[in-house]
């Protein structure tokens, strides 16, 4: 199940290797896949991959680039290739919210977006809320003890930041509605509500 981290750095898939006749067949299949699309007379939509392709994007204000296969998610590209580890890999199925990042102003599940789809995008992760001057959102979390194990926290603070950026005068109810795509297994929701009330009082 937890295979794409390993696959991200390798060529043929583990499954393709096992179901094929061996490494040579898998390598040959990979080579055909690489060469065949180039022969297509469609310059408007060139083929990328299946080998690693260049992905350039802006992460927290820094222009970063890496090469990943088309199947690598934005989450795995950020964590495993670009060393941006604020976004967490938990369910990896677009459900829990631990991988939440802001892409071009909107929250998305980075586990459910291909890295190649984020080319040229402006990505903000939890790291953008730290640094020399702590963002009011994580500051309120610290104040209100709004995390226990803390694994879901980067996703929650990113979702709250996005909600307050969209509407600095959001009510606590509106901020909570923006968190319906995030889950905290420790159940620190009550403390988070205190943090949200504090944030809304201060106007984001």
């Amino acid at each position: 199940m937890n295979d794409s981290t390993g696959e991200a750095r390798s060529g043929p898939s583990r499954r393709g290797f096992l179901t094929g006749t061996g490494a040579a067949a898998a390598a040959a299949a990979g080579l055909r896949g690489e060469l065949a699309p180039a022969a297509q007379p469609n310059p408007a939509a060139p083929a990328h991959g299946p080998g690693p392709v260049l992905v350039e994007l802006t992460v927290n204000g820094n222009k970063l680039s890496t090469t990943v296969e088309p199947r690598v998610t934005l989450l795995d590209a950020l964590r495993n290739h670009l060393d941006v580890t604020g976004c967490k890999r938990v369910c990896d199925r677009g459900t829990c919210g631990a991988c939440t990042v802001i892409v071009d102003g909107r929250t998305v599940y980075s586990c459910t977006m291909l890295a190649v789809e984020a080319r040229g995008a402006d990505v903000k992760t939890a790291e953008a809320l730290g640094g020399d001057r702590l963002d009011p959102v994580p500051a309120a979390f610290a104040d209100c003890d709004a995390q226990q194990c803390g694994f879901c926290t980067p996703g929650f603070v990113v979702s709250i930041r996005a909600a307050l950026d969209k509407n600095p005068k959001a009510t606590p109810e509106q901020v909570e509605a923006a968190l319906t795509g995030n889950i905290c297994r420790c159940g620190t929701y009550e403390q988070m509500r205190h943090a949200i009330v504090q944030l809304c009082r201060k106007g984001g």
């Binding site: 896949g33 699309p37 469609n42 060139p46 990328h48 991959g49 299946p50």
Partner: peptide, 19 residues
């Protein structure tokens, strides 16, 4: 997931021949 070739056409017309 199994790896694949990725295309990102700029128009619907450019997408059709890829299907």
């Amino acid at each position: 997931m199994k790896n694949f070739t990725y295309h990102r056409p700029a128009t619907v017309a450019a997408a059709l021949p890829l299907l």
